[in-house]
Design a protein around this nucleic acid. Sequence first.
DNA 1: GCGGTTTGTTTAGTTGCGGCACAAATTCAG
DNA 2: CTGAATTTGTGCCGCAACTAAACAAACCGC
Lengths: 404, 404
Amino acid sequence: MNGKVSTTRTKLERGRSALGPALELVHTGRAPTRAVLTSELGVTRATAGAVAAELEALGLIRVDSRPGSAAGSQGRPSHRLSVRESGPVAIAAQVHADGFRAALVGLGGRLVATAPGCVTVTADPAQVIGEVVDDCARLLRDSGLRCVGAGLAVPSAVAEPEGTALNPLHIAWPAGAPVSEIFADCVREAGIPGPAFTGNDVNLAALAEHRHGAGRGAQHLLCVATGHRGVGGALVLDGRLHTGSSGLALEVGHLTVNPEGRPCHCGGRGCLDVETDPLAFLVAARREPGPEESLLKQAGDLLRTEYEDAAVRGAAEELIDRLGLGLAGLVNILNPDRIILGGLHRALLDADPERLRAVVADRSLWGRSGSVPILPCTLDHNSLVGAAELAWQPVLDDPLAALA
Amino acid sequence: MNGKVSTTRTKLERGRSALGPALELVHTGRAPTRAVLTSELGVTRATAGAVAAELEALGLIRVDSRPGSAAGSQGRPSHRLSVRESGPVAIAAQVHADGFRAALVGLGGRLVATAPGCVTVTADPAQVIGEVVDDCARLLRDSGLRCVGAGLAVPSAVAEPEGTALNPLHIAWPAGAPVSEIFADCVREAGIPGPAFTGNDVNLAALAEHRHGAGRGAQHLLCVATGHRGVGGALVLDGRLHTGSSGLALEVGHLTVNPEGRPCHCGGRGCLDVETDPLAFLVAARREPGPEESLLKQAGDLLRTEYEDAAVRGAAEELIDRLGLGLAGLVNILNPDRIILGGLHRALLDADPERLRAVVADRSLWGRSGSVPILPCTLDHNSLVGAAELAWQPVLDDPLAALA
DNA sequence: GCGGTTTGTTTAGTTGCGGCACAAATTCAG
DNA sequence: CTGAATTTGTGCCGCAACTAAACAAACCGC
């Protein structure tokens, strides 16, 4: 019983350990100058200088030492740090009910190029993913930029480590489709370099909002959003996506928010999923629901343009109350320091922010948590940017190893 | 706009960075020999040797190099590592509805000495905490051992960073009592060296079970338990207690588990809190509840001795179904890889494990998560040991700095 | 007793980073 | 315009934590 099977795990991850944290600070915009980088990293100026120079040599950031660029306080102005414009990019792809989309995303969440790809999503994941990866490969070729990897956002929980989509029901894919493997295969066949990752769209949206949007600075960020059908949730803890032990955390759709509510396929009734999605809103407002892939737009337009209508307003208030109950339950369990809402939930927050905040405060037990800020998502294409974050992550963790 | 206010955060925490992880491995029993320590740390044998020697020099562990102690496989037998018997201890105290308790706890969660202190808890937190700290100080004096700090477990959520007890209702303390400050003051006045910490009892029980009990090896450990009244929850993520942004996470008592259930003071009805605690069990079994501070014992005895009684069994099955619904909700949100149950919930699991597992599997959406193991707590005095873990934590994080 | 195996120990680098001293670039006071 | 004050960048030294490699020690089976 001496020792273990593995002989002597060599530790080659030694290269300048502050490199990753430094890049992350520049990436998230928290280190605009070298002086700030120095204090944020908690190292000496000499070390921060060496780190910044190395990141510049890797082609990731730009160190602007020309004087006169910054003014305001006294003392020697610090060198400005910024993401390099023509630096490497990550491939980002997203599949949703009303089509798919491809993009190239640089450091800092900068959209370098996008391809709309407004094609109807078919029931065959391999075909859809193949098409979107083709779009990605074309974008990359046209740009001539270096690529660090690829990320895909899908509207379904993704089980880890298998990488299977467990409930892609609203896009008519078979449950359990091995989307992660399909995407990785397509990426490899298309000649796109670097690793490939797949994640749930709301998770990735939350990640993007945390780094570049309304979630910046939050330590316990809760994100809840609706697409066309169903509700998704995500939690970002200390800058890392919390996906649970097998990728299935924050499946918040089946919290009970209305004991007398309509039955849900999960076996319960009055679940958040069926009580606060666009379909529920349209039904409550007594409107005829249109095609499934445009429910979000229909509900959102209705909410914005006819809020004076009694039926619309009543439906909105009902949904706000239900959503508030669900958020309060999540606050009691997760105790986040910020909540951001997307999709129709964002529109509901915009319609009557005070009502939603009041319900959450009333039903989350402690006043302190009750006062948790609730904000709308601010980023365009946040799932897409989040998919790119997945691909950037290895570089952020260890730039030297990832770019070797 | 150059730099920040803070000048140059000095980084004096440099002393042998592998020291903390190494001590944690010995503390949790995951490094029985120096060879295992070497592979677990991922360092060379030389480094592991130096680290072990330094921990021994600090008086924390024992390195047993006498040959012949270990046999079984071929090759030179490795030196055995163990917690030092007469090493330093942490002070542990617990307040609960039926009294308080004091103890000294060594590394490895070893109870060195305990004082029962079976006194009725009064409505004055300062008085109760003062008495229990006196017991602690007496234990420490009598033992003659070195002390690294003190920890207190209370049956209430503790808000951070204020350290106030938010809902110590079942022990008749005022809501918002500054228990953390009271405890720290008492500890200082009693001449007990080291820092003082306060935490929720279920949180601390979960921490102790994770390191020394049924939760060992779990990466996402969920713990749910009932005392005499109400339900508490805790989550241990990657070895660290997850208490949310202000210490109020895992307040799981107000998940809806019975839409037609009895009203709860939170404003809802059918909450886990009022549907699955000992009082609910006694009422469902049509028994007369005894005094509040012995409800757990009364319910547990009833469950164990009269399970054949139809009313008792019916009540148990009803509570199991409600508990299962609550656990399923938590599984959907947190996706733990292990669940452990304490108090009456533990007894309910023992009574009919299959029924509980079936309900959780049925109502947690994905089969994979549905098969999450559900186990009973195994440690005696787990809250007490957990309180000591709080006090040990600085030593585990940086032994050199904490013992300086 | 002898090879094979696993572990402990010693020695000699390697390196990331703190500490320090000094140079550079700006503001502010006069 | 000049000089002091302030803040930042840079070069150099040294420490301390670690790796790598070679060797010694303690067990096994034959």
